[in-house]
Amino acid sequence: MTEEVAQPLTYIPEVILKRRKTNEELALRRKEQLEQRKFKSQQNKQEYIKKPEDFVKEYRYREMDLVHMRHRYPNLKNVRDLIYKKGFAKIDKKKVPLTDNNLIEQAMGQHDVICIEDIVHEISTIGPHFKEVTGFLWPFVLNKPEAGLKGSKTVFKDGGDAGDRGDKINELISKMN
């Protein structure tokens, strides 16, 4: 029988084992990142080629957003109050009070606007006949605000009275109505 001689165990320092483990994890992570980059680049190539319909759609949405942002000042309640209380029509270059829906139907019937509520709807939603309806209305004559204006010509954003009030236009309209 041959006797086996006990050989000493090979000893690997713990630091080296930890380094191997972190290097393996790092290699796996880099491999995943590379695969993700390849997938994203393929996806970007597919998105890069846009159809003309997509451009048209995108620019229409942008244009509609700009229109809505410009026309967001008065809310439905304020528009309705202004038209009912201070609304006058421009018929034959004369100021005529909006007392009868027949006047509205005769003047604006070709645009499917037959009553005061249709006028309110066209103005508040910026409908297809917005321009015709605003041309039909006489400019509103508003009262001074109860607290009064400061009288300064500085921009509203800088603490004055003039200029774009943004969402605070509703507060001014309710004060002046």
Score class of each variant (00 low, 15 high):
27 A>C: 09
155 V>F: 15
109 G>W: 00
92 D>N: 15
154 T>R: 02
76 L>P: 06
128 P>W: 06
26 L>E: 11
96 V>S: 12
7 Q>I: 09
140 F>A: 07
129 H>A: 09
162 A>F: 03
26 L>R: 13
85 K>S: 12
71 H>L: 15
1 M>N: 09
20 R>H: 11
48 Y>R: 10
47 E>Y: 15
68 H>G: 12
95 K>A: 04
103 L>V: 06
142 L>K: 05
93 K>E: 13
20 R>L: 14
23 N>Q: 14
53 E>C: 04
102 N>K: 15
155 V>P: 00
12 I>N: 00
94 K>E: 03
69 M>P: 01
135 G>Y: 04
114 I>Q: 03
28 L>S: 11
92 D>L: 09
14 E>D: 09
23 N>W: 04
22 T>A: 08
7 Q>N: 09
99 T>K: 12
1 M>S: 07
67 V>Y: 10
30 R>M: 14
155 V>C: 08
45 K>S: 14
138 W>V: 03
119 I>H: 01
163 G>I: 03
4 E>D: 14
117 E>N: 02
112 D>C: 07
134 T>R: 05
112 D>W: 00
95 K>Y: 03
114 I>S: 06
76 L>H: 14
119 I>N: 03
163 G>H: 07
3 E>L: 10
79 V>C: 03
167 D>P: 10
157 K>M: 09
40 K>W: 15
37 R>V: 08
160 G>S: 04
72 R>K: 12
54 D>T: 10
169 I>L: 07
74 P>N: 05
86 K>Q: 10
96 V>I: 12
106 Q>T: 08
42 Q>L: 09
53 E>R: 02
120 V>G: 02
48 Y>P: 01
100 D>P: 06
147 A>K: 09
41 S>Y: 09
87 G>C: 00
13 P>E: 12
169 I>G: 08
89 A>Q: 02
6 A>R: 11
145 P>S: 11
125 T>F: 11
9 L>V: 13
62 R>D: 07
139 P>K: 00
9 L>P: 14
160 G>M: 05
51 K>R: 14
167 D>L: 10
165 R>H: 04
86 K>G: 00
20 R>K: 06
149 L>S: 13
11 Y>W: 11
36 Q>W: 05
7 Q>L: 15
63 E>K: 15
146 E>C: 13
40 K>A: 08
110 Q>R: 07
175 K>D: 15
109 G>L: 00
74 P>M: 08
131 K>R: 14
77 K>G: 14
42 Q>K: 14
40 K>Y: 13
56 V>Q: 15
87 G>S: 05
69 M>T: 06
100 D>I: 04
135 G>T: 04
79 V>P: 02
125 T>K: 03
9 L>N: 06
15 V>I: 08
60 R>Q: 13
119 I>T: 01
